[in-house]
Amino acid sequence: MRELVYYVAVSLDGYIAGPNGQFDAFLVEGDHMDGINERFADTIPTDHAAALGIDQSTGIFDTVLMGANTYAAGLPEVTSPYRHLDQYVFTHRRRDPVDGVTFTDRDPVEVVRELKQTEGKDIWLCGGGDLATQLAEEIDRFVLKRQPVMFGSGIPLMAPGRYAPRRFHRVRGHDFDTGVSIVEYAAT
């Protein structure tokens, strides 16, 4: 069965973006990028990967889920950031159709349960924090790119207190010279 994987950069103090939704303090250069490009090449926006000559055909994901604010980060320039994946954007706002993007106001839990029952690769939960909280019980794995920065406030990895306690075990981890650590946890 397909897994829902919350793969995301997170600050030392537990935020996936700063107080104004900014994430530009996260390191995007350094030795950790080679590890990301090798194992998670499919999480790089399609146009960026093409410009860098990165092959995305062997990735572990074929679907990406985003909240409306995460999707909006690339607008208006980029309307279909991950054309190599099936893209789902959860929003209650009406949107004009975009090739390769499914906008939906359906319950994210129902959508994920349906996707998990279909054939395919794993499902990438890209963000944001509210969507992750709604899907907390459905997350099978966390892959956290722990960054050596603090935001002080902002969008948390998960909203507090809106899900039942669950145990995860560490599957793998790697520390890089940049100070970035990539740690993976699977549900027990």
Score class of each variant (00 low, 15 high):
residue 62 D to K: 06
residue 144 L to W: 05
residue 10 V to C: 13
residue 77 E to V: 11
residue 163 Y to W: 11
residue 86 D to G: 12
residue 9 A to W: 07
residue 148 P to M: 03
residue 60 I to Q: 15
residue 19 P to R: 14
residue 145 K to T: 13
residue 158 M to V: 11
residue 105 D to M: 05
residue 177 D to T: 13
residue 111 V to E: 04
residue 97 P to G: 06
residue 87 Q to N: 11
residue 170 R to T: 13
residue 146 R to I: 15
residue 23 F to I: 10
residue 72 A to M: 10
residue 182 I to F: 13
residue 138 E to W: 03
residue 181 S to M: 13
residue 165 P to Q: 11
residue 128 G to I: 05
residue 91 T to K: 06
residue 181 S to Y: 08
residue 69 N to H: 12
residue 51 A to Q: 12
residue 6 Y to F: 08
residue 154 G to A: 08
residue 183 V to R: 05
residue 11 S to Q: 07
residue 180 V to P: 03
residue 146 R to C: 11
residue 150 M to W: 14
residue 117 Q to R: 15
residue 156 P to T: 07
residue 111 V to R: 01
residue 30 G to Y: 06
residue 133 T to N: 00
residue 71 Y to A: 01
residue 162 R to L: 15
residue 103 F to V: 05
residue 12 L to H: 09
residue 90 F to I: 01
residue 131 L to P: 01
residue 139 I to K: 03
residue 12 L to K: 07
residue 7 Y to R: 12
residue 165 P to M: 09
residue 59 G to W: 02
residue 170 R to P: 09
residue 44 I to Q: 01
residue 141 R to T: 03
residue 94 R to P: 10
residue 31 D to L: 04
residue 174 H to P: 08
residue 99 D to C: 10
residue 90 F to N: 00
residue 152 G to F: 04
residue 71 Y to D: 03
residue 65 L to D: 00
